[in-house]
Amino acid sequence: MKWYENNAEHADIVLSTRVRLARNLKDYPFPSRLNEAGKNKVNAVVRDALLTGKRAKTFDYVEMRTLSHTQCVSLAEKHLISPEFASDSEGRALILSKDEDVSIMLCEEDHVRVQVIYPGLSLEAAYETANELDEALSRKVEIAFDPRLGYLTQCPTNLGTGLRASVMLHLPALSRSGAMQRLANTVAKLGLILRGAYGEGSKPVGDIYQLSNQVTLGISEQAAIKNLESIANQIIAQEKSAREALLKDDVFIDRIWRAWGILQSAHMLSCAEFMELGSLVRIGAAEGVLDIPVQTLTRLLVETQPATLNCAQGRSCTPAERDVLRARAVKEALR
């Protein structure tokens, strides 16, 4: 089962949890100083170290140059790889679990970027899975490490644990209350970042935000995870109480039902319109106004992104064709 098809803890507010570890092999220059042959060699070393025993059956090894541009962008839309990784395939490879919950980017900014994505709020479990892979790798391959600076990374911003953890939150009530900027400033003082997950930096769409840790040096993995988890729980509690007030408002309930009506009957839906109406239907589903499972909305959010729609069609579509396909997919899912 893929992460976006699963139900999980706090799924009414938390879409997903991601944990990423950045690692480099001690004996090779970092990716920006490697040519294609050097990168291929690094990829093979990591592949051979990791894909043994059971993992050989549950993971696929994919050379990025064998994928089409659309397939690459679709992987980025599913958050399985970074946009940067999707934009250039030379000398890059991906180790992907069949469930698409573990993705290991090879020769992105660092030699190895292990990423685990789980549904709902699941930080400790996601870290544990990432850590297991890191342990398996570091027993077989010497990892670039310095006792003072921790894991050595190509960009010094990731020094230390090389750990980036994040949770994706649906915060329609808090963003309607105008509290987001204040909240972002508060969590920044605690070493975390809260920003829109979709849309331009200043204008997030779909009320979906990403909360992640910023500090990697001078803090243990456990402390970073705990810190993020406790702030996430506080934001969840705030969103819950803001939702209570919002759901007493008949005007808002009316908007949820109208959004539901449009999503069920529209012949064309742009990505932006779906994001906006989907946010209303999601809160309706989460709070029992509408009788649909909330993960239906998560699945739609992933499957109706432009390149993922193209991929499902096996070809590149015009924006208008995509809007028709999107509306059809939404209609079917909400039936």
């Binding site: 850590n131 342990e135 570091s138 391959v141 010497e142 894991y151 001078g218 993995e221 402390a223």
Partner: peptide, 18 residues
């Protein structure tokens, strides 16, 4: 520059076991 980003911190996380 490292200190501008991270302060005077020292690594406090795990260590690889090769």
């Amino acid at each position: 520059s490292i200190q501008r980003i991270h302060g005077r911190a020292r690594h406090a996380g795990k260590t690889p076991h090769y």
